[in-house]
């Protein structure tokens, strides 16, 4: 009876992979997954640090990006145009979401929890809209470039995986340039670091909030279109994707962009390697187990400094 609790699925393909080869394969998969999480995680860190809102709906921008790219591609647009259009659409919807709900909510002095609930609600709305527009089917996009998988250090890697890692790396570099070299990027950072200080410098922090949401929508949509050729897109793929990005971002303390990327890659690797030990169905349990453990571990030091410190450390 008890042995049956863990019904291991039968191993796929070549069952007798060498350990080393298996390991490098798992690592390659982990990095690819982690790169996608990183795009969503960066978006979350961006909006959290500028507006203090945890955007549960971020995954929906990935969903809508992916599904609208499929529709545009099927309507006969060139793939590149469809992809770009999807990213722009993700930015637009995220910006509108901020303008219609988050910003008015903050103006009315809504608490962080209310705003979190609002983003949950928006997640529901967008998921429902995706369901109505695209139904429950899975959709596919062609790989961005055709061709045989490549072998790197014994791991078989699809060309799309290279696209995922490559595009994520480019985006990270572009973001680095934006935040460290441009006045607008610095202004965005400033409004994340200190709202009062930024307003005193004449920086319109609420317009920065809009910009942050739009950027995060674009990042998530990019993530959505990147994985579609490999994993197919469905109307309900967003939430978990967004939450995984959140786990990675929390590992990066929701404030540092490099740490967010590192956290997301770590999560991707952890999930992928745990698949070597546990049935793949437990992947999500691993991710959220890690999240809860990290959150609690981080809450401990404040407790030692007294209840006031613990309460204030939260904000």
């Amino acid at each position: 009876m008890y042995a049956g609790w863990f019904n291991q699925p039968p191993p796929e393909g070549e069952s007798q992979l060498e350990l080393g080869q298996q390991l490098s394969q798992l690592i390659a998969t982990g990095i690819t997954t982690g790169a996608i999480y990183a795009l969503l995680g960066l978006g979350l860190t961006l909006t959290y640090s500028t507006t203090r809102v945890v955007n549960v709906a971020i995954g929906e921008f990935a969903t809508i990006g992916a599904l609208s790219a499929v529709s545009m591609y099927r309507a006969g647009l060139p793939l590149a145009v469809a992809l770009a259009g999807a990213v722009v659409l993700g930015a637009l919807i995220a910006g509108i979401m901020y303008g219609l709900t988050i910003r008015p909510g903050q103006r009315k002095g809504a608490g962080l929890l209310s705003l979190l609930i609002v983003t949950i609600a928006i997640h529901l709305v967008l998921k429902g809209v995706a369901l109505i527009l695209w139904g429950t089917r899975s959709y596919n996009l062609p790989a961005f470039t055709q061709g045989e998988p490549v072998r790197i250090l014994n791991a078989v890697i699809t060309r799309q995986s290279l696209w995922i890692v490559g595009v994520t790396a480019l985006i990270v570099i572009a973001l680095y340039y934006f935040f460290s070299r441009t006045l607008l990027g610095k202004a965005l950072r400033a409004s994340a670091v200190n709202v009062v200080g930024s307003r005193l410098m004449g920086i319109p922090v609420y317009r920065m909030g809009f910009l942050a949401f739009a950027l995060s929508g674009a990042l998530a949509a990019a993530g959505g279109v990147l994985i579609t050729p490999d994993t197919l897109a469905t109307y309900d793929m967003g939430l978990l994707l967004g939450l995984k990005g959140f786990v990675g971002a929390v590992i990066g303390r929701l404030s540092s962009y490099p740490m967010t990327v590192a956290g997301c890659l770590l999560l991707g690797l952890l999930e992928s390697l745990s698949a070597g030990l546990l049935p793949s169905g437990y992947r999500d349990a691993v991710a959220f187990g890690v999240l809860i453990a990290i959150l609690i571990y981080r809450a401990l030091p404040a407790l030692r400094h007294g209840v006031l410190a613990a309460e204030e450390a939260h904000d």
């Binding site: 008890y2 962080l112 437990y282 959150l295 809450a299 939260h314």
Partner: peptide, 26 residues
């Protein structure tokens, strides 16, 4: 945990329980 970290942790807990309901097939 407090505030939205508590919300996210309980949400994660829900997902973990759901995973076990799906995986403990026997």
């Amino acid at each position: 945990l407090r505030g939205h970290y508590l919300v996210i942790a309980t949400l994660g807990f829900n997902i973990i329980v759901e995973v076990f309901a799906k995986q403990l097939r026997g």
